[in-house]
Every structure is written in structure tokens, then in C-alpha cells.
Amino acid sequence: MFKNVMKAYYQAAPWIIPVLLFLLWQLFSETGWIPDKVLPSPLEVIHAGVSLAGSGELLTHIGVSFKRAFSGFIIGGGLGIIFGLLNGIYRFAEKHFDTTIQMLRNIPHLALIPIVILWFGVGEEAKIFLVAIGVFFPIYINTYHGIRSVEADLIEMGEVYGLSKWKLFSKIVFPGALPSILVGLRYALGVMWLTLIVAETVAASSGIGYMAMNAREFMQLDIVVLAIILYAILGKLADFLAKLLESNLLKWNPVYQHNERG
């Protein structure tokens, strides 16, 4: 009984502080310690959210942003994995590509915004291009590093035991690199949101960032705050999915077995 209560408590524990902050914010807004012109109260933000959702506008913006994030992530992440695997496995590929990629990596991708706008205008391509570039490098580096740090002993064992080249890759090299690849994935998700927020704020005609910028012009502070909170929630959601993926794919790792044991 007591054990169950503790378990339930621990599951709720991460949300205690966010809920508390929320309540305090509401309280301070109502007492007037936080002026309305600086920050609207949480209830006002929720109200703004509900009315925007009612008109269907909110969902359209979220959908547009999500589509951009997802497309960019798939393109950039896919290329990152392909190049990471190629350069990790084949010395020939590494010799030819790695230096160039490392050079490009050091250009802050957000610095490309002016040129990207000149190339693509404010259309979808610009945002997807920027997200893809931002996501490519963390995934590339972690995939490459993961492949390189698979234990040589295990690969030697696989060779002695007569595994084919494909089995050697699929049973030893790739699963060995997977923890590192997933770290790259989680990091890339963060970069993905950041890039999207900046790109949508600077140059867009739809999406959550556009919604916020548009609301700023009309001094609709509640909608601006709503957009910020939406980014937080979507970011948390992406991270949650990545975590879920991790604990499913890395079940073998003692680090992810604590739930079963305890």
C-alpha cells in the first residue's frame, strides 16, 4: 500500500514544480504584483488558447510548424545518419568527407538566414532547409563517434565466429553505436525547435512563430505568451518521445533496467 503511494508520488513528482509555478503566477497576477502589461495571467493565456483553438487558427499554426520541423528533421537527420555510418565504417569515405563536414559544422547555421531568404524567399523551403542543416551535424557527429567507439574486441569476436559482413554490422556495429546515435537524436530535437522558432520569427507567413510575431504587432501579449508555452510543451513532447525510444531500444543497458528491478 505504502509502496504504491510512493510510486504514484514519484510519478507525479516532476510536475510539482511546474504546477506550483503556475499557481504562483496566477496568484501574483491576480494580486497585481505582476502588471497585466508585463505578463498576462495564466488563465488569460489559456483563454486565448481556447478561443484560438475554437477558430481553428491555433491548430493550423501548430500543424504548419510541426510539418516544417518534421520534414527538416527527417531530411537532415537522415543525411546525418547516412554520412555518419559511411564515414564511421569506410576509411575511404572518411578521408574524403569528414574534413569538409567539420569545416561546415563551424558555421552557425542561423547565420545563413539572410542568404537563405534570398535563395528561397519566406516559403517553406527556407525553414525546412535551416532545420535540416541544424539537425544534420549533431546526428552526424554522434553516429560517426558511436561507430568508431564500438569495442574492437566484439568485432574481432564476430569475425572469428564467422558472421557475414551484414550480420557484423546489424548485430554488433550498429547496436553498439546506437546509444551514441540516440544522444545525437535528442540533442538534434533541441536544435530543431530552436532553429524553427528563429526562422519562423524572422521570416514566415504562418506557424507558431509567425503567430507570436503577428500578435506582438497588435499588442496581444496573451497570444505571445501562449506561443512561448507551446514551444515549451512541444519541445518537452519531442524529448519524451526520444526518451521512450531510448528506453525501448536500449533495454539491454542496465541504466534502463531500474524500473523492472525497483
Binding site: 565466429y161 558472421l163 557475414s164 547496436p175 539491454w252
Partner: peptide, 19 residues
């Protein structure tokens, strides 16, 4: 032992059979 930590005991033995 050089067992693959990401495979079950049975699959590790299966490696000896080339899977």
C-alpha cells in the same frame, strides 16, 4: 566473455552459429 550486451543470452549463443 565478449558477449554482446544488447542481445539475450540465447542470441549471444546464436552468434556462434552465425545467426
Amino acid at each position: 566473455a565478449r558477449l554482446l550486451p544488447w542481445q539475450t543470452v540465447l542470441k549471444n549463443v546464436g552468434v556462434g552459429l552465425g545467426m
